[in-house]
């Protein structure tokens, strides 16, 4: 297992997340896809930490912060999705286009 394996894994994960972001109709699904993108970055951090700076834990610390923030983001995100559900009676993101042009 070299650094490149990890990088390719994270790239694949990132692209899957991106794909989900662009295609999922359900807002919760979209949120989950974004979570994948965050985790792709986390894999990068941890891998770089292990291979580039093995004596310092910058990457690990960074990824812990990211996990925390992602949790906060998801909490706020779900609250907003709930709000949307109340107002629009549904969470299909392609129905929510009241404002355009």
């Amino acid at each position: 297992m070299t650094l490149y394996h990890y990088l390719i894994l994270s790239a694949i994960l990132f692209v899957i997340g991106m794909y989900g972001l662009l295609t999922r109709r359900n807002a919760v699904g979209v949120l989950m896809s974004i979570e994948l993108m965050f985790n792709a970055a986390n894999i990068n951090f941890v891998a770089f930490s292990k291979f580039i700076t093995p004596n310092e834990f910058i990457g690990q610390i960074f990824s812990i912060f990211v996990i925390t923030i992602a949790a906060a983001e998801a909490a706020v995100g779900l609250a907003i999705v709930l709000l949307i559900y109340r107002n629009y009676k549904g969470i299909e993101v392609d129905n929510i286009n009241f404002m355009k042009w």
């Binding site: 949120l31 974004i34 993108m37 970055a41 983001e73 706020v76 107002n87 929510i96 404002m99």
Partner: peptide, 21 residues
């Protein structure tokens, strides 16, 4: 307003994931 919140939140989170990457 809730639509604005949803759009801002999803796109904002995605862009911060991009930034983070």
């Amino acid at each position: 307003s809730s639509e604005a919140g949803l759009k801002y939140m999803i796109l904002g989170a995605a862009s911060s994931a991009i930034l983070l990457y």
